[in-house]
Amino acid sequence: MLRRRPPDWLTLLMPTIIVIAIIVLIPLIFSFYSSFTPYKLTRPSTLWRWVGTANYERILSDLNFWAAFGRTILFLTIALNLELLFGLGIALMVNKVTWGQRTLRTVLMFPMMFSPILVGFQFKFIFNDNVGLVNNALQSLGITDVALPWLVDSKLALFSIAFAEIWMSTSIFAILILAGLFAMPRDPLEAAKVDGCTPWQSFRHITLPFLMPFIFIAMTIRSLDVARAYDIVQIMTGGGPARRTELVWTLMARTGYVDARMGIANAMGYVSILLSIFFTIYFFRKLSAARAELGL
């Protein structure tokens, strides 16, 4: 009896295909499909009503969504750039430390070990306008006698959230850049000294180009991280008050789970994923260019 057997390669790949299908492919297709329906969690039957691109049209003309989208980009830009700056500074200083550097490196990682939820709670307390540490300190020092609305005012609230985010994640930049500094050959720096460079020129012309690939790796990782910032924001302000700190993911979660409008939330997800894809491609291009420049 002759039975057709699947080719060996397919048999061997089957477990992987099955696992990936269950974990990634089916949810992806399902969510993509549901973004074309008015699917509400509370009324499952809505899943079978096809509305075409209505959800997308609605999002694209929704000011709230675009405000959240823009705010996410702003937040991303501020957080990433400051983290890079602080991370670079810390890495350069730690690199100079000769005694106790290992300990310092470990201490540096502490903020990364906390759950973002806990960091959110911690900073919610620190920035609380009545009992928070910041206002307490400002008032005791006589710098101000009013209670600053850290988590209420739209600009201050975004600042507070960025502060928490930066506190937690600067060390990722610091560690990656430090790794770059460790990998850096010493000779070109000495050659630069002999060639007449001041310390700043050495840094600008020799060290920084060498560190760029490391910086772009950190940027790629962190841009994906921050673009899906949810937990810290949710805990500290819940996206409020009155949407003043609403980011894409808090908006999405609210739409999907609080308002139960899963169809439109999924549509938002697909639009904002473009953001992540854009940043990934952008930084990856930069990374390849920087590596090519170093002849790697």
Binding site: P185, D187, P188, A191, K193, V194, G196, P209, L294
Partner: peptide, 20 residues
């Protein structure tokens, strides 16, 4: 004086070229 003010130049064992 720092190296840059000594008007010397140096060739290193590992060449020490600027890779970029």
């Amino acid at each position: 004086l720092p190296p840059r003010e000594r008007n010397i130049s140096m060739v290193f064992q590992n060449y020490a070229l600027y890779p970029h």
